[in-house]
Design a protein around this nucleic acid. Structure first.
Lengths: 224, 224
DNA sequence: AAGATATGACTGTCGGGTAAGTTACCACAC
DNA sequence: GTGTGGTAACTTACCCGACAGTCATATCTT
């Protein structure tokens, strides 16, 4: 049996792989690892399930490719921002601005790296851990610097605050996904307004760099 | 067939239901709705799967009972704290303190109400929504009051900040679950330290009540 | 002809859900 | 006290659909 609809469509493997990863990233990001089925991804890509297995070996392999893709994207961008000299809240804002720019057209990518339904052990957990470790390291750095300026240096305190900061970023991303009409710029301006309202403007004057928060300097050059 | 191991063990239905809900809450809270199987819960309770179905009808029915239990607990406690006159950051701290006290011996309950792997539609979603709505309403109130004091009144801004606040609470709870040795008191003190470090002590002097943040007043009477 | 690109149809397992039967307990007659 | 029937508390053994993963086969390009 297995009659007639087979045969190559002339799509080179690498192109097909990229297409599959993109579509799978959308599904994984929107529905989570657990709620996404390989057959579903194949359908949405207009191909059959065995082809996905041919190229990625397993569901985990497919998810790994997606993590590799968005994890590297995110980690590299955040590391790039961290190389600026900004400190304190300005550093946090720069990070947020860069992420808004990076993810404006693909907001779902954020959810892949932080997906709570992905396996908690095995290769997927290790890959996720390696990317979140890179991100958390920088968050930890920023938080340490900021808190030590106020005389707080306890390990557990810094640790908890780091988690809170990552939670804030996560909340903003989630809110952004739920409000598709908001642009990256609008989100950054919103964060500026909120931080100003909470901390007062005086805080910004105390940062070392003389930048004005609004990303017109080299700190925000990532805009496409 | 069906030989011999059946028959009542003399446990009244209500007792058994409470036991099942408790065990299920642990599983749902620790592993999430999707990753928890009814057979697993039954095993851990030392009973068989059909008994669970007999009492709760379905997996969703069981989860609903768990939501009802922890949702009511949380919402009532937060509403109770909201009846105090505290404003601004003090109000947030009171809320955190009350939750730490309430959940100290059952931290996993928090994860049931905010479980991202629970169904996004149907009765479960509605029950979850009704409890989170009660909680979010109060969070929204507090955020509105706080931001309007700084001249920020935009709906979207307030909305986003509310989500961020809930994200902060969520992060702290998650961190707490990962650090079982920390007591409720230690957590509250930690929050006081962090807020003081970030906002400076001046902010507390500007609240209306003369309380000293440390819960020795009526604002923290929930301690068991 | 060979190798890359593809597919239909299958298997195995896991987990939600059910049918039918078993045992303990209790009330009441006698 | 002892049968006797009703009911509440249980279990074993099964069904069934969804989904990860596989096999054999087919078509296209060169």
């Amino acid at each position: 049996m297995a009659r007639s609809n087979a045969g190559t469509k002339g799509v080179p493997r690498l192109d097909r792989e990229m297409q599959i990863v993109n579509i799978a990233s959308q599904s994984f990001g929107a529905d989570g690892y657990a709620a996404t089925s390989v057959a579903d991804v194949a359908d949405r890509a207009g191909i059959s399930k065995p082809l996905v297995y041919n190229y990625f070996g397993s569901k985990d392999g497919l998810f790994l490719a997606c993590i590799e893709h968005s994890g590297a994207l995110l980690a590299e961008e955040i590391e790039r921002v961290a190389r600026d000299e900004a400190v304190g809240i300005q550093r946090g804002l720069n990070t947020l601005g860069a992420m808004f720019d990076l993810l404006e057209r693909q907001r779902h990518l954020w959810r892949i790296v932080v997906d709570p339904t992905s396996p908690a052990s095995g290769p997927i957990a290790e890959a996720t851990a390696s990317y979140t470790a890179r991100i958390e390291k920088l968050a930890h750095e920023g938080v340490t610097e900021m808190l030590s300026g106020a005389g707080l240096t306890g390990d557990l305190d810094v640790d908890a605050m780091t988690r809170v900061w990552l939670g804030i970023v996560d909340s903003l991303m989630t809110w952004w996904v739920d409000h598709p009409a908001e642009s990256a710029d609008q989100m950054l301006q919103r964060c500026v307004r909120l931080i100003t309202a909470l901390f007062g403007t005086t805080l910004f004057g105390s940062t070392m760099t003389g930048t004005t928060l609004l990303g017109d300097d080299d700190g925000g050059e990532g805009r496409a």
